[in-house]
Design a protein around this nucleic acid. Sequence first.
DNA 1: GTGAAAGCGCTAACAT
DNA 2: ATGTTAGCGCTTTCAC
Lengths: 337, 337
Amino acid sequence: MNRTRPTMVDVARECGASLKTVSRVINGEPGVKPELAAKVERAVKKLHYKHNLTAGSLRRLGGRTQTIGLLLEDISNPYSAALHRSIEDEARARGVEVFAGSLDEDPDRERQLVNGFIARRVDGLIIVPSSTDHKYLAAERKAGTHFVFVDRPAHGFKADTVITTNSDGVEGSLQSLIKNGHTRIAYLGDFEKIYTARERYRGFCSAMSKGKIAIRPELVRLGFAHRSEIEAFVINLLSRKDRPTAIFAAQNVITLEVVRILRAKNLHHKVALIGFDDLAFADLLDPAVSLVTQDVHAMGQIATELLFARLDGLSAPYEERVVPTTFTERGSTLIKP
Amino acid sequence: MNRTRPTMVDVARECGASLKTVSRVINGEPGVKPELAAKVERAVKKLHYKHNLTAGSLRRLGGRTQTIGLLLEDISNPYSAALHRSIEDEARARGVEVFAGSLDEDPDRERQLVNGFIARRVDGLIIVPSSTDHKYLAAERKAGTHFVFVDRPAHGFKADTVITTNSDGVEGSLQSLIKNGHTRIAYLGDFEKIYTARERYRGFCSAMSKGKIAIRPELVRLGFAHRSEIEAFVINLLSRKDRPTAIFAAQNVITLEVVRILRAKNLHHKVALIGFDDLAFADLLDPAVSLVTQDVHAMGQIATELLFARLDGLSAPYEERVVPTTFTERGSTLIKP
DNA sequence: GTGAAAGCGCTAACAT
DNA sequence: ATGTTAGCGCTTTCAC
């Protein structure tokens, strides 16, 4: 940006119209004679005038910037990237641009990014939260900013939320394993502070309980600080005398690591496996990996719709929309105990 | 945003200081007595005041918004997502937020997004271009917006550019295949209108020429409108009497599809394969797939550095930075003809 | 050290 | 149908 950019005043001077007439033409407001409008258009082209939305929003009623912010776990992971894309597509249809940022499970980073986006006066925020206390958002909402939560609910703050059937998805996927007689089932999940991790583990517990199978604590681990910890845990699991006959990997990075170790130990045809989250290549592995997947596209679309509905003035009670998971059974769950 | 947000004037009234003093405190300017500053801070907290960067940039010299825009091929593909992340990290260190959008190889979309971001007065733009004529950016640069091109160069517009060794990467990776006696080598690439596609194909031609092997046009295809076209072409290739003994897949989606068909036809241990671009699971496949990969992280980092250098006033000639590719040899190229 | 006034580029409200 | 004026929230400039 700098002072050499032409303004509406420059355009007005160039074509002999008034500032307001230029504003009308630029904003497509009715009531300008075609000939005058054409003159304005010509001046705009000649001067390479570019509208400054940011200045306009300052004075405009409601002050909307046609901009939203998106807080993701990590922009570069496939789940976040897919969500981002579906939100982008919805926003594009409304002429809205989107800011995005990664939180890396850091609550401080969440607040920093919220502040950063609000300093740029986004109309609303779509958040995959990392913090567990969202009371700080109340003041922002009062000031006119809207919020939608995706993947995980807000805490201490009521808001529209889009989640998936984490628990039921896990529970359902375990049915066939249990029916096939698996009882030594290992579970590798994320830290319990993460909502989705708790829910998925709840689904595991529920399936085991309904199948009247005792959960063996030594086969369960919730939370890995690093990939190497997954590796160590799996290697240990597989070297046990009573090694598990099946493994549930509750997240894509974990699934990837489990596949890696199973292959390294040549046990990929001996130990059954279910993963949570999509993997682009699940059907190319040997055996192909059975997965519980979310409809990320639908989640992004619904989240954006909810946000825009609020921006359009909807004041109905906040909604929780639940999008079902899908279980795709492949070779890895045809392995018998 | 709306009229209920407190402004600096509200804060000033609340704490009995002047507007300018509040501005000084908010912006961390020196020369405010600690006690007064503390009063201001207290009022800020009490009123939940949030700085409006967008209003400030209107009057500020240079008019910087601390915001940049990122134009990617497709936000949700792993290459774009990784690039995005490395740019985000660099930007974060400077307190800069980033807009992002997908072009889907559509030149019109490129211009729309450039306009959309400029309407929001980004300080600069990092572009993986889809158009082949960037003369339209000259006026924007004159107006003070800066540009860096990544992955593909600009056309008709000089700018800082970060590219990778597409041609040499392909050529180098083919050496061992050729040494091993492969001569019927198929090449599946992108449309030639895409710079990287041309460059990679050039590398293929060069390797074949140096190896004194004639390129068979029937084994080459540049451009697939859809995945199904890849499938059809590969099936046809593999059903030939003189089917290729090796395949070069010049892009990750193509590689994925080739792997899929090779497995379906049970030829994955018979036909050698090299892919361009990284695949998270290349080493989990059977055979593991040899890949030519770019250092996406370095590319994003360099691009952001170049952009910030320009924003900081650097006026040296525009640079082209070339980041080397890496060839990781795995099982798929140990297959003999 | 602190503050008053002007003005950034635009839209709202009100003329004409 | 077109224009004039005020003012959005802030930074600049300049005065105290």
